[in-house]
Design a protein around this nucleic acid. Sequence first.
DNA 1: GGATCATTACTCGGATACGCCGTGTCCGAGTCTCCCGGG
DNA 2: CCCGGGAGACTCGGACACGGCGTATCCGAGTAATGATCC
Lengths: 153, 153
Amino acid sequence: MEEGQSSRKQPKSCPSTYKTFSLSLQALVILAKHSSTCPSSDIATYMQSEATLLRRILAVLAREYIIETREGREGGYRLSKSPDLITLAEVYSALQIDEARCSGMTEATGENSFGVKMKSVMFDITSEIDQSVLTVLNKYTIADLVERTCEPD
Amino acid sequence: MEEGQSSRKQPKSCPSTYKTFSLSLQALVILAKHSSTCPSSDIATYMQSEATLLRRILAVLAREYIIETREGREGGYRLSKSPDLITLAEVYSALQIDEARCSGMTEATGENSFGVKMKSVMFDITSEIDQSVLTVLNKYTIADLVERTCEPD
DNA sequence: GGATCATTACTCGGATACGCCGTGTCCGAGTCTCCCGGG
DNA sequence: CCCGGGAGACTCGGACACGGCGTATCCGAGTAATGATCC
């Protein structure tokens, strides 16, 4: 039997939670402020977080071509494109947070006819929620976050 | 002494996850189909889930006056009002799933100036997402789910 | 026959134990830089 | 002076262990129906 279309996605990397999303956004803002490459240890120090956890998350973003890695001395992470071209929805989708919500909703159903029908309904509602969330997140870019973190108000 | 606007929030009760939300919706649909009171064991059997887990969740819904409990023989759970008056947003808010998302986003920030600013930004975005989600969930009621689970398509 | 009360069966809610997932710590593989020697 | 090679140091990514949260199992407290008993 073929494996299907699940070839590119390694869900083993990092947890698809909102904390991960928050850490990703903060790291991207920091990378946007730094012009050159920035190692994970510096980011972790600035964010008061753990370097390995950041690396796990940033590896996913690098796999989705949002950032680029550079190993060796003077290496680290760097944005692949301009901060105003990176939407929060793009980061959100890269981390597959919507799929986590979907599985959380649909996998809680049984196998009988009622469970199957409810699973279908849950999937529809989840899809609508995800689309709504993506619409909101599409309005903001990393550049917006940089601006809002530099100017208090 | 009145408790004020705290409205007796015991976060110790059940996890604020989407699986909980899914189980709540399924249980409410089942309760809407049954006119009289229905014990948790019957609901769990029909949903192919665990009775104690359902009871934990339903206790929260009863605390928010969405359903009513009746102990003793021939007891169980019963909807407090008509299914077409119970919106999914109401259930969603009762389970405090939005607060779980908010804490997941805001608690991932540090304590320095950058972390505080990011926390504020995260809170704003989270609030906007929550409002969007609630808007979607306000369009549907338990009666809608009952209808969609009875009529295949 | 009707009312009262003890019995009983059935319910929910809480306490406890197990398992999984997320997180923290450590280490190896890889690579880019820097310095030094030779032409 | 310019170029090439080796050492060095710094980086990321993966493996392993700890901790917390969610979940499952069990049990007690409480209540409403039931049936027997008495008036």
